[in-house]
Amino acid sequence: MSAIDDAATEAAEAPEEREIEEYRPHRKWYRRADIMVPVLVLVVVYALLVGYVESPNFFRTRMEAPGGLVNFDWMWFFHLIPLMLQGLLVTIKGALLGFAVAVVLGFFLALGRRAKLPFVSWPTMAVIEFIRSTPVLVQLFFWLALERAIPGLNLSPIALLMVGLGVHYATYCSEAYRAGINSVDKGQWEAATALNLSPATKWTRVVIPQAVPNVLPALGNYLVAAFKDAPMAFVIGVHGVLFFADQVAAETFRVTEPYLIAGAGFLVASLPAAWAVRQLERKIAYERI
């Protein structure tokens, strides 16, 4: 015993020894800084976006657009950056709000899909398949028309985007959940049954903690995908990044700069997001689902 203690203190005294043992993959995911710090950052950014980003009502520029002779004007291009950022923030907000709906709704869809009763699971599957294989754009128009058809309902454009993106990506999320749950080893279920755990305990203490690491990267990918679909919401009146480009183009009759700056700004936001998801994928021992 004492020999081991001695060895431990010795190891603690030697500085190089201590630096080696940082990576502990067996730590639970919610105790790992490399997972939780990005998650917390995401939550904070999310809260800030939801609380503080307002949709601007117009994108009026204070600079005269150059005349029609030049095809592309760099000064004008850079001048548009702040306006574009306003629009981009609204787009990001819309995507995150919509995805929040998707994460929750997708869980219920996954439950419905896994239901033992065929008259629950089959229609759920049918709905998932139907929504998954039809365009979001049409779905947005559908929700818009439905919202107008129901008297007394008055949703803001961003709320409509939440519904549209939320329902669409809920079907994707439900598939991710299903795959994540299926990836939990069969022996774990059997062990939980053998220990006579209640269904609630089985799910919350055994299945979900093991499924989460497999689901998170897939969810991250879908979040990026949802973000890429969010700009199209300008058709239902969300004042996002494409609305900005559209409006500046309509005002100034110049189309190259606003659309290119919108594309560049979008890449600046989406590439780090995709990179972060890949890092997450690598950090968590991610089994292909």
């Binding site: 890429k228 679909d229 700009p231 199209m232 494409l242 189309v255 290119l260 979008f266």
Partner: peptide, 14 residues
Amino acid sequence: GISSIILIFIMAVA
């Protein structure tokens, strides 16, 4: 990384 809708606008308009 690019959103397909933005890419369509860039290709077809810009």
